[in-house]
Design a protein around this nucleic acid. Structure first.
Lengths: 275, 275
DNA sequence: CAAAATACGTAACATACGATACAGCGCTCC
DNA sequence: GGAGCGCTGTATCGTATGTTACGTATTTTG
């Protein structure tokens, strides 16, 4: 049974031509407010012409645009009445299994941050922001993208940020460049990779400060790490989730950026003038 | 300080003549929906004439009725976005501002999934799982790691999964391999990259089905996309957050895996025996 | 109690909005 | 490769909508 217009749209979006589908997508993306504006505004936002919008609402079964808007308003009214049931898409309890995934992920994040003290984060931020040395990042089979993501941001706001990619032999050679003043950020969750452990150990022996992102069972690298961030990874899926670690990474990126801004780093000012 | 129109009304309702006060009361009683309807409807509901409604909105300080309606819509938009913290001061330096970051991220995820129907996800999963064609993944400057992350997982549970890396010229050449049966997963958030848009357009012309991960303002690629996933990206940071998209990606990975298991794919059984 | 001022509604007006006809284009299917 | 169909945008039209002018009613004040 179809109760909301959003449902109606996702039900029929498959049968729509390209232009109308574009209209549908923009409406869903900014639901339902775009639909309450004029046809001209709606069409501009969707990048199509006015008639396409009208054909779109006609395909949904409405006689005209005002009737469509009234329906949206009625829906809004019902939603505003009971703020509790603000669910736009009633998750099907059977095969969907979407909502449990989301719930578990949200729980993981809350739990991860609950075990993460502000002081701990502040220490890491200070270490990353106050840089006279270099920053290296590396990750495991599934977590290396997180290392890349973090590197892509850090490399912009400060110099000497390197993501270690490729084969083991390649990054082992980079060990030569690493010393006491440098920081190595490692992502390693189950199943922990021997190559990373070996690499971390050697780096540690050279005096490199290691920041480890791992799961709650702690990679063996924790033994060598100066700072350990333990994220929750359990979700109802065949795979572990790195989402919590991802959010911690984003938090750190933001905090380091803010710190550098507060320090009035020349680089930041130069960056802004470049934009 | 007066932030909402409702406040503004209750602030000035004392100074209003009888008719306008009736208008104010009916608006408060059905806030804010009556105000989004036409002047005629509003006046009928309030039991006054149209000019009275117009004088009422004029007294609130609005130039005309549409301006008043826009203000109501903006207010609604802010309210619908996230019930919680949208008004945070991004000025607290150092590591202190962790919790707002987390809260915003959690809001983003809830909001992203709220705008994502099960059907939409199911369609994408079906498309990715029922594969006679190839799957290509690519991302923008900051989102390419998400493409990598997804590719790393998908490549295990099915053949013919390719992450497009390196320079533009390199992946442009791969277009030769792409056809109607193939799927291209693109990650593109602001600021949208021209190179990706061009690439998507060409792929689209070749009949490739595009699945787009973007932000709520929709990359221009949405024009060519078969499926669009619009994630919320706003956080109290100098950077946009890709965390919501990351979680959607993980959800899809999990769902595709489950689907293939349900289909009894030979590859999955072989994989399990390999472990 | 009278006169003035304010408030309100009726009716005419202009504009902006939604609706429609039509032509160009690309796509699919013979 | 050609014919047909379907989709989309441009331009035009009618109308519903917001707006304003004006006259009447109501309240206020001396």
């Amino acid at each position: 049974m179809i109760s909301s217009i959003a449902e109606l749209i996702s039900d029929r979006i498959g049968t729509m031509p390209a232009g109308e589908r574009r209209a549908a997508q923009t409406l869903i993306a900014n639901y339902p407010l775009i639909g309450l504006k004029t046809v001209a505004e709606f069409s501009a936002a969707a990048g199509v012409s006015s008639p396409t919008i009208l054909r779109f609402v006609a395909r949904l079964g409405f006689q005209n645009y005002p009737e469509f808007q009234s329906a949206l308003q009625d829906e809004l009214a019902a939603q505003l009445q009971s703020p509790a049931s603000r669910t736009l898409n009633p998750s099907s309890p059977g095969g969907g299994a979407v909502s449990p995934m989301l719930e578990a992920t949200l729980d993981n994040m809350r739990e991860t941050f609950r075990h993460l003290s502000d002081k701990q984060l502040a220490d890491i931020v200070a270490k990353l922001a106050d840089r006279r040395g270099k920053t290296f990042l590396i990750g495991g089979r599934f977590t290396d993208p997180l290392a890349r993501y973090m590197a892509a941001h850090l490399a912009i706001i400060q110099p000497n940020v390197f993501h270690l990619a490729g084969q083991e032999s390649i990054w082992r050679d980079r060990l030569i460049d690493m010393g006491k003043r440098d920081v190595l950020i490692i992502f390693d969750i189950r199943r922990y990779q021997d190559s990373l452990v070996r690499f971390a150990e050697t780096a540690h022996q050279r005096g490199v400060q290691i920041v480890l992102f791992t799961d709650q069972w702690l990679s063996p690298i924790a033994r060598f790490a100066r700072h350990v961030i333990a994220g929750r990874t359990a979700v109802p899926s065949a795979w572990d989730s790195s989402a919590a670690l991802f959010v911690v990474a984003e938090t750190l990126i933001g905090a380091v950026t803010r710190q550098l801004e507060a320090d009035g780093a020349k680089r930041i000012r130069e960056l802004e003038s470049l934009r």
